[in-house]
């Protein structure tokens, strides 16, 4: 394998990993902070109704 390519691939992995982790944590925090209580019954009803879009 060309060491140049390996280097680029490693860089790509690192960058995507870091971006993914940063944004992932951000989203998770946002989801936690802005959590909305959804009545489980609503979900259940939606599940049943979901047949035609």
């Amino acid at each position: 394998m060309d060491p140049q390519l390996v280097k680029i691939a490693m860089g790509g992995l690192a960058v995507l990993g870091v971006i993914g982790i940063v944004f992932g944590i951000g989203l998770a925090l946002a989801a936690h902070k802005f959590h909305v209580e959804v009545d489980p019954k609503v979900e259940a009803v939606k599940e049943v109704l979901a047949g035609a879009q």
């Binding site: 860089g11 790509g12 995507l16 971006i19 944004f23 951000g26 989203l27 946002a30 909305v36």
Partner: peptide
Amino acid sequence: LQFFQVVIFIGIVSLIVQAVDIILRK
């Protein structure tokens, strides 16, 4: 890493959509 542009760009869009979804809901 220019060849990653498609993955990164669409990733950002889906991230924003998800974030706006979460925040707006509250």
